[in-house]
């Protein structure tokens, strides 16, 4: 865990009074509180930093230790004991051999880094304020086909398996909240929530806007001019469409209820919009060219 300069975190000087620290903390807490900055990870990180800084600096004893030992303030007692022990050993050694030596300040820091380094990250606040646990944010990648029907998924969050139901019709970027599955509350505060944001990838030929689907189908010149039947794909099956004579390029038709399921409205679907794209024939034979020329003369 990176060292946080608590004074810098609160934006106060090392000579700041208790009142100044309290005032700075309250101001920054209002600015970065997760409730006031929904889905803002930077604000959440900053809020944790200022909380930690306030818990240490608002307690005179802890502040004194922090001023003296910096990032190792939590291990100050052990540090002092080890220092005294070292001093005793050094004196004994000097008494025996008359030499000098021993550990430097830097060595002590290394020793404590090794002995207590792991404990620092487990630090918890000792203040009385109840804080809601942090919200956990997760992104779930799904294919568009996956969200056509309601289905269940098991997610592993902090070594716990959570089985969630993903309703049909969820949208890209939509977030669902699983209450109480976030970080643990502080001092009896409520647990945070697990926020799952869906990232939906579309590898189909259909474009989606909410519960409507859009696609383009090719229409040959003769069917467009004379009319006829055309088989087209819907999202899940095929349908036969009747093409009216003299259908123009870019004509749109709506297939009602053939779109995407409506979110949390079981059995209801949006529409499928089909745009006809006229494909004119290429590599004309001499005979075809002749006939088209005749047609041209008729117009």
């Amino acid at each position: 865990m990176a060292f946080i300069d608590y004074y810098k975190a609160l934006g106060v000087s090392k000579t700041a009074s208790e009142k100044d620290i309290k005032k700075a903390y309250r101001k920054l807490a209002r600015k970065h509180h997760p409730d006031l900055n929904p889905n803002d990870k930077e604000a959440e990180k900053k809020f944790k930093e200022i909380n930690e800084a306030n818990e240490v600096l608002s307690n005179p004893e802890n502040r004194k230790k922090y001023d003296q030992y910096g990032e190792h303030w939590q291990n100050s007692e052990a540090y002092e004991q080890a220092k005294q022990q070292q001093s005793r050993q050094q004196r004994a050694y000097q008494g025996q051999a008359g030499g000098s030596g021993g550990y430097s300040e830097r060595d002590f820091e290394d020793i404590f880094g090794n002995m207590f380094g792991g404990q620092a990250s487990g630090r918890r606040g000792s203040g009385n304020s109840r804080f809601r646990g942090q919200d956990f944010n997760a992104e779930l990648q799904l294919d568009l086909k996956d969200v056509y029907e309601e289905h269940k998924r098991t997610l592993t969050v902090n070594n716990k398996n959570i089985r969630i139901t993903i309703p049909a019709g969820v949208e890209n970027g939509q977030t669902i909240k699983i209450k109480g599955h976030g970080g643990k509350g502080v001092n009896g505060g409520p647990n945070g929530d697990l926020l799952i944001q869906f990232s939906i990838h579309n590898h189909t030929k259909f474009k989606r806007n909410k519960d409507n689907l859009y696609t383009t189908v090719n229409l040959d010149l003769y069917t467009a001019m004379l009319g006829g039947d055309l088989m087209v794909d819907t999202f899940t099956s095929k349908v036969k469409l009747t093409i009216k004579p003299e259908t123009q390029n870019g004509t749109k038709v709506k297939l009602k209820g053939k779109g995407f399921p409506k979110y949390k409205k079981a059995g209801q679907f949006g529409d499928l919009y089909i745009t006809y794209q006229l494909k004119t024939p290429t590599k004309l034979t001499d005979k075809e060219k002749e006939l088209f020329t005749e047609l041209q003369k008729l117009r």
Partner: peptide, 14 residues
């Protein structure tokens, strides 16, 4: 506004 932005981003993808 956040919901609106998400909705507009999805429409833009069209």
């Amino acid at each position: 506004m956040q919901n609106k932005i998400t909705s507009l981003q999805n429409t833009l993808r069209l």
